[in-house]
């Protein structure tokens, strides 16, 4: 079962449901943040489906710590 594909499909459906309510708010910030987050999530989900190398959050944490020993 390809979980990435499931995520991609459900992510594509999300704005369909949420945008009408968002537009009613008349808040450009909300729209921007929502679509920004949505785009990041969609990009990662597509990355997972396509088998691209993923970001390893813990590896980032590890490299961050290694910059400041002790």
């Amino acid at each position: 079962m390809n979980w990435g594909l499931l995520l991609v499909i459900s992510l594509i459906l999300v704005p369909v449901f949420e945008t009408p309510q968002l537009v009613k708010l008349h808040s450009p910030r909300d729209l921007v943040v929502f679509f920004g987050l949505w785009a990041v999530a969609l990009a990662s989900a597509i990355g997972v489906t396509a088998g691209l190398p993923q970001w390893r959050v813990l590896d980032w944490a590890r490299s961050f710590i290694q910059l400041y020993p002790g």
Binding site: L22, F34, L37, W38, A41, R56, V57
Partner: peptide, 17 residues
């Protein structure tokens, strides 16, 4: 409205951590 993209992000990060 941020719940769903955030949740999807959680899943992806969970798979990668």
């Amino acid at each position: 409205h941020l719940i769903y993209p955030l949740a999807a992000l959680f899943m992806i990060i969970a798979w990668n951590t």
